[in-house]
Amino acid sequence: MTMSGDGPAGGSQVALVTGGYDHTIKLWQAHSGVCLRTMQHPDSQVNDLEINPSGQMVAACGYQHIRMYDLASANPDPIINFDGVTKNVSRVGFQENGQWMYTGGEDCTARIWDLRAGRQFQCQRIFQVPAPVNAVVLHPDQSQIMVGGQSGIIHIWDLKTDHNEQLIPEAEASIQDIAIDPEGKLMACVNNKGNCYVWSLGGSPPRPVPKKHIQAHSKYALRCNFSLDSTMLVTTSGDCSAKVWNTKDWTLKRELRHDTQRWVWDAAFTIDSRYLFTGSSDSYARLWDLEKGTLEREYCGHQKPITALAFRDQAV
Protein backbone atom coordinates (compact mmCIF):
# COMPACT_ATOMS: atom_id res chain seq x y z
CA MET A 1 0.00 0.00 0.00
CA THR A 2 1.36 3.36 -0.90
CA MET A 3 -0.07 6.31 0.81
CA SER A 4 1.74 9.18 -0.72
CA GLY A 5 2.01 10.61 -4.18
CA ASP A 6 -1.08 8.90 -5.50
CA GLY A 7 -2.95 12.05 -6.31
CA PRO A 8 -5.92 12.48 -8.55
CA ALA A 9 -3.54 12.71 -11.48
CA GLY A 10 -1.79 9.53 -10.55
CA GLY A 11 -4.33 7.11 -11.88
CA SER A 12 -7.04 7.60 -9.31
CA GLN A 13 -9.73 10.14 -10.00
CA VAL A 14 -11.02 10.17 -6.46
CA ALA A 15 -10.49 13.60 -4.97
CA LEU A 16 -11.54 15.14 -1.72
CA VAL A 17 -10.99 18.87 -1.40
CA THR A 18 -11.64 20.93 1.71
CA GLY A 19 -11.32 24.62 2.47
CA GLY A 20 -12.12 26.97 5.25
CA TYR A 21 -11.23 29.84 7.47
CA ASP A 22 -7.48 29.20 7.45
CA HIS A 23 -7.22 30.48 3.86
CA THR A 24 -6.02 27.16 2.54
CA ILE A 25 -7.51 24.47 0.36
CA LYS A 26 -6.40 20.91 0.99
CA LEU A 27 -6.48 17.98 -1.35
CA TRP A 28 -6.77 14.66 0.43
CA GLN A 29 -6.22 11.09 -0.43
CA ALA A 30 -9.70 10.11 0.63
CA HIS A 31 -9.12 6.48 1.53
CA SER A 32 -6.01 7.02 3.66
CA GLY A 33 -6.80 10.40 5.15
CA VAL A 34 -3.44 11.80 4.11
CA CYS A 35 -3.26 15.39 2.95
CA LEU A 36 -1.62 15.38 -0.47
CA ARG A 37 -1.42 19.08 -1.13
CA THR A 38 -2.23 22.43 0.33
CA MET A 39 -3.22 25.30 -1.91
CA GLN A 40 -3.30 28.96 -1.01
CA HIS A 41 -6.51 30.91 -0.94
CA PRO A 42 -5.23 34.33 0.09
CA ASP A 43 -7.23 37.03 1.82
CA SER A 44 -10.43 35.09 2.21
CA GLN A 45 -12.20 32.13 3.72
CA VAL A 46 -13.54 29.52 1.32
CA ASN A 47 -17.31 29.71 0.99
CA ASP A 48 -17.81 26.92 -1.48
CA LEU A 49 -15.83 24.39 -3.48
CA GLU A 50 -16.77 22.64 -6.66
CA ILE A 51 -14.74 20.28 -8.84
CA ASN A 52 -15.22 21.02 -12.53
CA PRO A 53 -16.82 18.42 -14.83
CA SER A 54 -13.49 17.24 -16.22
CA GLY A 55 -12.15 16.67 -12.71
CA GLN A 56 -9.01 18.63 -13.51
CA MET A 57 -9.76 21.73 -11.51
CA VAL A 58 -11.48 22.84 -8.38
CA ALA A 59 -13.22 26.19 -8.10
CA ALA A 60 -13.18 27.97 -4.77
CA CYS A 61 -15.21 31.05 -4.05
CA GLY A 62 -14.60 33.61 -1.35
CA TYR A 63 -14.50 37.32 -0.85
CA GLN A 64 -14.55 39.06 -4.25
CA HIS A 65 -13.04 36.11 -6.09
CA ILE A 66 -13.67 32.78 -7.66
CA ARG A 67 -10.37 30.95 -8.05
CA MET A 68 -9.62 27.83 -10.03
CA TYR A 69 -6.88 25.46 -8.92
CA ASP A 70 -5.26 22.73 -10.92
CA LEU A 71 -5.76 19.43 -9.12
CA ALA A 72 -3.24 17.56 -11.21
CA SER A 73 -0.17 19.75 -10.70
CA ALA A 74 1.69 20.71 -7.57
CA ASN A 75 0.97 24.39 -8.06
CA PRO A 76 -0.21 25.86 -4.76
CA ASP A 77 -1.55 28.97 -6.47
CA PRO A 78 -4.69 29.36 -8.52
CA ILE A 79 -4.38 29.24 -12.29
CA ILE A 80 -7.45 31.33 -13.03
CA ASN A 81 -8.81 34.13 -10.94
CA PHE A 82 -12.33 35.35 -11.69
CA ASP A 83 -12.53 38.93 -10.63
CA GLY A 84 -14.89 41.85 -10.55
CA VAL A 85 -17.39 40.91 -7.87
CA THR A 86 -17.58 43.44 -5.06
CA LYS A 87 -18.64 41.16 -2.21
CA ASN A 88 -18.54 37.63 -0.92
CA VAL A 89 -19.25 34.94 -3.46
CA SER A 90 -21.20 32.29 -1.58
CA ARG A 91 -21.73 29.53 -4.13
CA VAL A 92 -20.14 28.23 -7.29
CA GLY A 93 -21.11 25.49 -9.71
CA PHE A 94 -20.63 24.29 -13.28
CA GLN A 95 -22.76 23.50 -16.25
CA GLU A 96 -22.42 19.78 -16.93
CA ASN A 97 -20.10 20.22 -19.92
CA GLY A 98 -18.06 22.92 -18.28
CA GLN A 99 -19.23 25.54 -20.77
CA TRP A 100 -20.15 28.01 -18.12
CA MET A 101 -19.93 28.50 -14.42
CA TYR A 102 -22.58 29.96 -12.15
CA THR A 103 -22.07 31.89 -8.92
CA GLY A 104 -24.15 33.69 -6.36
CA GLY A 105 -23.12 36.15 -3.72
CA GLU A 106 -23.73 38.88 -1.25
CA ASP A 107 -23.90 41.48 -4.02
CA CYS A 108 -27.49 40.24 -4.52
CA THR A 109 -26.76 38.64 -7.86
CA ALA A 110 -26.45 35.29 -9.50
CA ARG A 111 -24.03 35.29 -12.41
CA ILE A 112 -23.13 33.10 -15.29
CA TRP A 113 -19.51 33.13 -16.40
CA ASP A 114 -18.62 32.05 -19.89
CA LEU A 115 -15.85 29.44 -19.83
CA ARG A 116 -15.95 28.42 -23.46
CA ALA A 117 -12.80 28.68 -25.52
CA GLY A 118 -13.04 30.29 -28.94
CA ARG A 119 -16.57 31.43 -28.31
CA GLN A 120 -18.62 33.16 -30.97
CA PHE A 121 -20.53 35.25 -28.50
CA GLN A 122 -20.41 35.85 -24.78
CA CYS A 123 -22.99 34.11 -22.69
CA GLN A 124 -22.45 35.96 -19.43
CA ARG A 125 -25.66 36.59 -17.59
CA ILE A 126 -26.55 38.38 -14.45
CA PHE A 127 -29.65 37.95 -12.36
CA GLN A 128 -30.44 40.54 -9.75
CA VAL A 129 -32.40 39.68 -6.61
CA PRO A 130 -33.41 41.98 -3.74
CA ALA A 131 -31.26 40.35 -1.04
CA PRO A 132 -27.82 38.76 -0.61
CA VAL A 133 -27.63 35.32 -2.19
CA ASN A 134 -26.73 32.35 0.00
CA ALA A 135 -27.60 29.49 -2.27
CA VAL A 136 -27.48 28.85 -6.00
CA VAL A 137 -28.10 25.52 -7.63
CA LEU A 138 -28.44 24.39 -11.21
CA HIS A 139 -31.31 22.14 -12.15
CA PRO A 140 -30.04 18.89 -13.73
CA ASP A 141 -31.82 19.90 -16.95
CA GLN A 142 -29.15 22.65 -17.17
CA SER A 143 -31.65 25.36 -17.97
CA GLN A 144 -32.90 26.62 -14.62
CA ILE A 145 -31.05 28.08 -11.69
CA MET A 146 -32.50 28.28 -8.20
CA VAL A 147 -31.35 31.33 -6.28
CA GLY A 148 -32.07 31.72 -2.58
CA GLY A 149 -30.92 34.13 0.06
CA GLN A 150 -31.46 36.43 2.98
CA SER A 151 -34.93 37.46 1.96
CA GLY A 152 -36.18 33.90 2.30
CA ILE A 153 -37.28 33.79 -1.33
CA ILE A 154 -36.27 31.11 -3.81
CA HIS A 155 -36.14 32.51 -7.33
CA ILE A 156 -36.40 30.01 -10.13
CA TRP A 157 -34.54 31.62 -12.98
CA ASP A 158 -35.21 30.11 -16.37
CA LEU A 159 -32.08 30.72 -18.40
CA LYS A 160 -33.73 30.31 -21.76
CA THR A 161 -36.68 32.57 -21.24
CA ASP A 162 -35.31 34.78 -18.44
CA HIS A 163 -38.65 34.16 -16.82
CA ASN A 164 -38.55 33.85 -13.04
CA GLU A 165 -40.80 32.38 -10.45
CA GLN A 166 -40.67 32.81 -6.68
CA LEU A 167 -41.20 30.51 -3.74
CA ILE A 168 -41.42 31.62 -0.13
CA PRO A 169 -41.32 28.58 2.12
CA GLU A 170 -41.20 30.46 5.44
CA ALA A 171 -41.53 34.09 6.37
CA GLU A 172 -38.67 35.88 8.11
CA ALA A 173 -36.20 33.09 7.60
CA SER A 174 -33.24 33.16 5.26
CA ILE A 175 -32.61 30.41 2.76
CA GLN A 176 -29.22 28.84 3.54
CA ASP A 177 -28.99 26.16 0.90
CA ILE A 178 -30.93 24.59 -1.93
CA ALA A 179 -30.50 21.13 -3.44
CA ILE A 180 -32.08 19.31 -6.35
CA ASP A 181 -31.85 15.54 -6.61
CA PRO A 182 -29.96 14.08 -9.61
CA GLU A 183 -33.19 12.90 -11.19
CA GLY A 184 -34.60 16.41 -11.09
CA LYS A 185 -37.69 15.33 -9.22
CA LEU A 186 -37.10 16.77 -5.76
CA MET A 187 -35.95 20.14 -4.54
CA ALA A 188 -35.03 20.81 -0.93
CA CYS A 189 -34.00 23.91 0.94
CA VAL A 190 -32.86 24.57 4.49
CA ASN A 191 -33.16 27.84 6.38
CA ASN A 192 -31.64 29.61 9.35
CA LYS A 193 -34.33 28.24 11.66
CA GLY A 194 -33.20 24.68 11.04
CA ASN A 195 -36.23 23.88 8.90
CA CYS A 196 -36.09 21.84 5.73
CA TYR A 197 -38.69 22.18 2.95
CA VAL A 198 -39.08 19.76 0.10
CA TRP A 199 -40.88 20.26 -3.22
CA SER A 200 -41.72 17.82 -5.89
CA LEU A 201 -40.57 18.96 -9.33
CA GLY A 202 -41.63 15.94 -11.29
CA GLY A 203 -45.17 16.96 -12.11
CA SER A 204 -46.53 18.09 -15.41
CA PRO A 205 -46.28 20.93 -16.09
CA PRO A 206 -42.96 20.87 -14.16
CA ARG A 207 -43.79 23.26 -11.35
CA PRO A 208 -42.63 22.92 -7.76
CA VAL A 209 -45.30 21.40 -5.55
CA PRO A 210 -44.76 21.51 -1.77
CA LYS A 211 -44.16 18.00 -0.54
CA LYS A 212 -42.71 17.96 2.94
CA HIS A 213 -41.64 20.15 5.82
CA ILE A 214 -39.10 18.65 8.24
CA GLN A 215 -38.01 20.28 11.45
CA ALA A 216 -34.55 19.03 10.71
CA HIS A 217 -32.47 20.88 13.27
CA SER A 218 -33.01 22.96 16.36
CA LYS A 219 -30.57 25.60 15.15
CA TYR A 220 -29.32 27.24 11.98
CA ALA A 221 -29.15 24.81 9.10
CA LEU A 222 -26.24 25.21 6.69
CA ARG A 223 -26.41 22.75 3.84
CA CYS A 224 -28.55 20.17 2.16
CA ASN A 225 -27.63 17.62 -0.49
CA PHE A 226 -29.20 14.61 -2.17
CA SER A 227 -27.41 11.33 -2.67
CA LEU A 228 -26.81 10.24 -6.26
CA ASP A 229 -29.50 7.56 -6.06
CA SER A 230 -31.95 10.16 -4.66
CA THR A 231 -32.77 7.93 -1.69
CA MET A 232 -31.19 10.19 0.90
CA LEU A 233 -31.07 13.83 1.80
CA VAL A 234 -28.43 15.16 4.16
CA THR A 235 -28.89 18.36 6.15
CA THR A 236 -26.09 19.92 8.17
CA SER A 237 -26.40 22.42 10.93
CA GLY A 238 -25.03 24.62 13.65
CA ASP A 239 -26.39 22.08 16.15
CA CYS A 240 -23.13 20.14 15.54
CA SER A 241 -24.80 17.37 13.60
CA ALA A 242 -25.43 16.17 10.10
CA LYS A 243 -28.70 14.30 9.59
CA VAL A 244 -29.43 11.86 6.82
CA TRP A 245 -33.08 11.49 5.82
CA ASN A 246 -34.76 8.77 3.80
CA THR A 247 -36.49 10.46 0.89
CA LYS A 248 -38.96 7.63 0.68
CA ASP A 249 -40.79 8.40 3.92
CA TRP A 250 -38.74 11.35 5.26
CA THR A 251 -37.65 9.45 8.33
CA LEU A 252 -34.30 10.07 9.95
CA LYS A 253 -31.81 7.47 8.77
CA ARG A 254 -28.69 8.63 10.59
CA GLU A 255 -27.75 11.41 12.94
CA LEU A 256 -24.03 11.95 12.59
CA ARG A 257 -22.43 13.40 15.67
CA HIS A 258 -19.01 13.28 17.25
CA ASP A 259 -17.80 14.53 20.63
CA THR A 260 -15.54 17.15 19.17
CA GLN A 261 -17.63 17.96 16.13
CA ARG A 262 -18.92 21.49 15.99
CA TRP A 263 -20.91 23.25 13.26
CA VAL A 264 -21.17 21.01 10.22
CA TRP A 265 -20.77 23.23 7.19
CA ASP A 266 -20.83 20.92 4.23
CA ALA A 267 -21.47 17.33 3.24
CA ALA A 268 -20.97 15.13 0.17
CA PHE A 269 -22.00 11.57 -0.71
CA THR A 270 -19.96 8.94 -2.51
CA ILE A 271 -21.46 7.82 -5.83
CA ASP A 272 -22.64 4.52 -4.35
CA SER A 273 -24.44 6.52 -1.62
CA ARG A 274 -22.75 4.42 1.01
CA TYR A 275 -20.44 6.96 2.58
CA LEU A 276 -20.80 10.62 3.47
CA PHE A 277 -18.13 13.25 3.97
CA THR A 278 -18.73 16.11 6.38
CA GLY A 279 -16.64 19.18 7.17
CA SER A 280 -16.82 20.87 10.54
CA SER A 281 -15.78 23.87 12.56
CA ASP A 282 -13.49 21.68 14.66
CA SER A 283 -11.26 21.76 11.54
CA TYR A 284 -11.83 18.07 10.82
CA ALA A 285 -13.46 16.51 7.83
CA ARG A 286 -15.00 13.11 8.48
CA LEU A 287 -16.07 10.10 6.49
CA TRP A 288 -19.11 8.19 7.75
CA ASP A 289 -20.33 4.79 6.76
CA LEU A 290 -24.05 5.34 6.37
CA GLU A 291 -24.94 1.67 6.44
CA LYS A 292 -23.19 1.05 9.72
CA GLY A 293 -23.44 4.58 11.07
CA THR A 294 -19.75 4.50 11.93
CA LEU A 295 -17.02 7.07 11.62
CA GLU A 296 -14.54 5.65 9.12
CA ARG A 297 -11.96 8.35 8.57
CA GLU A 298 -10.94 11.70 9.88
CA TYR A 299 -9.07 14.31 7.89
CA CYS A 300 -6.96 16.55 10.06
CA GLY A 301 -4.71 19.35 8.86
CA HIS A 302 -6.71 22.54 8.70
CA GLN A 303 -5.92 25.15 11.31
CA LYS A 304 -9.39 26.58 11.40
CA PRO A 305 -12.98 25.54 10.62
CA ILE A 306 -13.69 23.72 7.39
CA THR A 307 -16.53 25.55 5.69
CA ALA A 308 -16.62 23.86 2.33
CA LEU A 309 -15.78 20.54 0.76
CA ALA A 310 -15.97 18.96 -2.64
CA PHE A 311 -15.72 15.31 -3.46
CA ARG A 312 -15.34 13.59 -6.77
CA ASP A 313 -15.75 9.87 -6.88
CA GLN A 314 -15.02 7.49 -9.69
CA ALA A 315 -17.15 4.66 -10.90
CA VAL A 316 -15.60 1.23 -11.20
Binding site: Q13, A30, P140, S143, D272, Y275, Q314
Partner: peptide
Protein backbone atom coordinates in the same frame (compact mmCIF):
# COMPACT_ATOMS: atom_id res chain seq x y z
CA UNK B 1 -27.64 32.03 -28.81
CA UNK B 2 -29.63 31.37 -25.66
CA UNK B 3 -30.75 28.05 -26.99
CA UNK B 4 -27.19 27.17 -27.81
CA UNK B 5 -25.68 28.11 -24.48
CA UNK B 6 -28.54 27.11 -22.20
CA UNK B 7 -29.89 24.07 -23.90
CA UNK B 8 -32.34 22.12 -21.84
CA UNK B 9 -31.15 18.57 -21.46
CA UNK B 10 -33.17 15.56 -20.65
CA UNK B 11 -32.56 14.39 -17.13
CA UNK B 12 -31.60 10.76 -17.02
CA UNK B 13 -31.93 8.63 -13.99
CA UNK B 14 -28.36 8.09 -12.76
CA UNK B 15 -27.23 4.50 -12.94
CA UNK B 16 -26.21 2.61 -9.89
CA UNK B 17 -22.47 2.78 -9.71
CA UNK B 18 -19.77 1.19 -7.67
CA UNK B 19 -17.51 3.67 -5.97
CA UNK B 20 -13.78 3.53 -6.36
CA UNK B 21 -13.46 5.06 -2.93
CA UNK B 22 -15.47 2.23 -1.37
CA UNK B 23 -13.10 -0.21 -3.02
CA UNK B 24 -10.07 1.69 -1.81
CA UNK B 25 -11.43 1.82 1.71
Amino acid sequence: QKAEAFKKVEVKRPQKQKSLLTEQL
